Deep mutational scan, measured.
Amino acid sequence: MAAAAAAGAGPEMVRGQVFDVGPRYTNLSYIGEGAYGMVCSAYDNVNKVRVAIKKISPFEHQTYCQRTLREIKILLRFRHENIIGINDIIRAPTIEQMKDVYIVQDLMETDLYKLLKTQHLSNDHICYFLYQILRGLKYIHSANVLHRDLKPSNLLLNTTCDLKICDFGLARVADPDHDHTGFLTEYVATRWYRAPEIMLNSKGYTKSIDIWSVGCILAEMLSNRPIFPGKHYLDQLNHILGILGSPSQEDLNCIINLKARNYLLSLPHKNKVPWNRLFPNADSKALDLLDKMLTFNPHKRIEVEQALAHPYLEQYYDPSDEPIAEAPFKFDMELDDLPKEKLKELIFEETARFQPGYRS
Score class of each variant (00 low, 15 high):
E350V: 14
D106T: 04
T185Q: 07
A171L: 10
E33H: 06
K330F: 06
D20G: 01
S41G: 13
V145D: 01
D20A: 11
T295G: 04
E349S: 02
A42G: 11
Q306Y: 02
K270D: 07
L130N: 07
C254W: 08
K285S: 05
N45A: 12
G32Q: 00
E81Q: 04
E350K: 14
Q132L: 15
L75N: 03
Q132V: 03
K231E: 08
L313T: 08
Y30Q: 06
M293A: 09
V21C: 08
K231T: 09
P328T: 15
D235S: 02
K330Y: 06
S246H: 04
K73T: 08
S142M: 09
P298H: 15
C65E: 11
F228E: 00
R79V: 11
K99L: 03
D337N: 14
C65Q: 10
K270I: 10
Y316I: 04
V18D: 15
L289Y: 06
M108S: 03
Y102M: 07
A171S: 14
S29I: 14
C161K: 01
R79F: 06
D20L: 03
P23M: 01
R70C: 13
M108Y: 12
M333N: 04
P226L: 07
P152S: 13
G16T: 01
L69D: 00
C65P: 12
C65N: 11
G85V: 14
K114V: 09
T68W: 10
W212R: 14
H310K: 02
K344R: 13
K231N: 13
C216L: 10
Y25N: 14
I89Q: 00
P298A: 09
V104H: 06
L155C: 04
V101A: 12
A174Q: 13
Y64Q: 15
H269Y: 10
P328F: 07
D288F: 05
D88K: 00
M108D: 09
A195L: 08
N158Q: 08
D162L: 02
G10D: 12
E197Q: 06
G242H: 09
F228Y: 15
A260T: 12
A4E: 01
L346E: 13
F168Y: 13
A352Y: 03
H299F: 01
A2I: 00
K300Y: 11
N262G: 03
N271L: 06
A325D: 06
Q17S: 08
L130Y: 02
G16S: 10
S122E: 10
N297G: 06
L115A: 05
M108A: 13
I56G: 15
D336A: 12
P311R: 01
V104S: 05
Q236Y: 02
E314S: 04
H269T: 09
D175R: 10
C166R: 09
K164C: 07
I198H: 06
R172P: 08
V18F: 12
A189V: 11
I103M: 05
F19C: 12
H61Q: 14
K99R: 12
I72H: 06
K48R: 14
R353I: 14
L28R: 07
L278F: 09
T159P: 13
L237I: 09
S29L: 10
N45M: 10
F331Q: 03
S29K: 04
D100H: 12
E186Q: 08
Y102L: 11
D321N: 11
F228P: 00
C65M: 11
D167I: 02
P196Q: 10
G16M: 13
V14W: 10
L75E: 14
H147Q: 15
W275R: 15
I53P: 04
L218I: 10
F296A: 03
L222Y: 12
G230F: 05
I256A: 09
Y113G: 09
L222M: 13
F329S: 03
I165G: 09
T160A: 02
D111P: 02
R301C: 05
D210Q: 08
N271F: 08
R191A: 01
K292T: 05
N257G: 12
D321P: 00
R70A: 04
S208D: 06
V46K: 14
C127K: 02
F78L: 14
L200E: 06
L107H: 02
E186C: 03
R194I: 14
D336R: 05
A143V: 11
N201R: 07
R79H: 02
S29Y: 01
L313C: 02
P356V: 00
A3T: 12
G169Y: 02
L170S: 02
S223F: 07
L163S: 11
R70V: 02
I84W: 05
L346R: 00
Y43Q: 13
V145K: 02
L130S: 11
Y25L: 00
I211K: 11
I302M: 00
I31G: 02
A5I: 04
Y25V: 02
I211A: 10
P23L: 07
E186N: 01
T118H: 03
M221N: 02
S57R: 14
D210A: 12
C254H: 08
R50F: 04
K138Y: 12
M333D: 14
E109M: 06
L116V: 00
I72P: 01
S122H: 02
Y193F: 15
R79A: 02
I324N: 12
I133W: 03
K54H: 00
L278C: 04
P323C: 02
E12G: 14
V273K: 02
A325H: 01
P229N: 01
T190R: 05
K117H: 04
I31W: 15
P339T: 13
L335E: 00
L294V: 06
N281T: 14
L241C: 00
L308D: 02
H180G: 12
I84N: 15
Y317W: 01
I31E: 15
V104E: 04
D235W: 05
M98F: 12
T94P: 13
T118Y: 04
D336T: 10
L76T: 02
L294Q: 13
Q249N: 01
L116M: 12
I103Q: 09
H239C: 12
H80P: 01
L157T: 04
Y102V: 09
R191V: 04
V39I: 10
Y102I: 11
N253D: 00
S320L: 08
V304H: 07
T110W: 05
I256N: 13
G85H: 09
S153V: 00
N82K: 10
L137Q: 14
R301V: 02
Y312K: 02
G204Y: 03
L200W: 11
E303Q: 00
K300I: 12
Y25R: 12
L222R: 10
T26V: 07
E345F: 02
G357W: 08
V173T: 09
Y233Q: 01
N257H: 09
N47K: 15
I31F: 15
F331C: 08
Y128D: 02
E96V: 13
L69T: 03
P229Y: 03
R191D: 07
D210H: 07
F279W: 06
P11R: 12
Y187R: 03
D235V: 14
Y316A: 01
H239R: 00
P328V: 06
K272S: 05
P226A: 07
C65D: 06
K117W: 10
I255H: 02
K151M: 14
N144K: 13
I133D: 05
N144A: 05
G136T: 02
D167N: 15
T26C: 06
L234F: 06
K117F: 10
M293W: 02
E250K: 09
N201D: 03
L115Y: 00
I324F: 14
R50E: 11
T185R: 05
K203W: 11
K151I: 06
T185L: 02
L28Q: 14
G37S: 15
G169H: 02
S213L: 09
E334N: 10
I165K: 07
Y30M: 04
H120T: 09
G204N: 07
P319S: 09
D111Q: 06
L237F: 05
V173M: 11
R79I: 14
V39Q: 07
I90L: 08
N257C: 07
H61W: 12
M221A: 09
E326P: 02
L241N: 03
I165L: 06
P247V: 06
G169N: 09
L115N: 00
I240K: 05
R91Q: 05
L170A: 10
D321G: 00
T63G: 12
G245Y: 10
G8Q: 07
D177M: 11
V21M: 12
I56V: 14
D100T: 10
E326K: 13
I72E: 06
L121N: 02
L130G: 09
F78R: 02
R135A: 05
I31K: 15
L150T: 02
I240Q: 10
S213P: 04
S208E: 03
K340H: 09
M333C: 09
K270C: 02
P93V: 05
Y233S: 11
N144I: 15
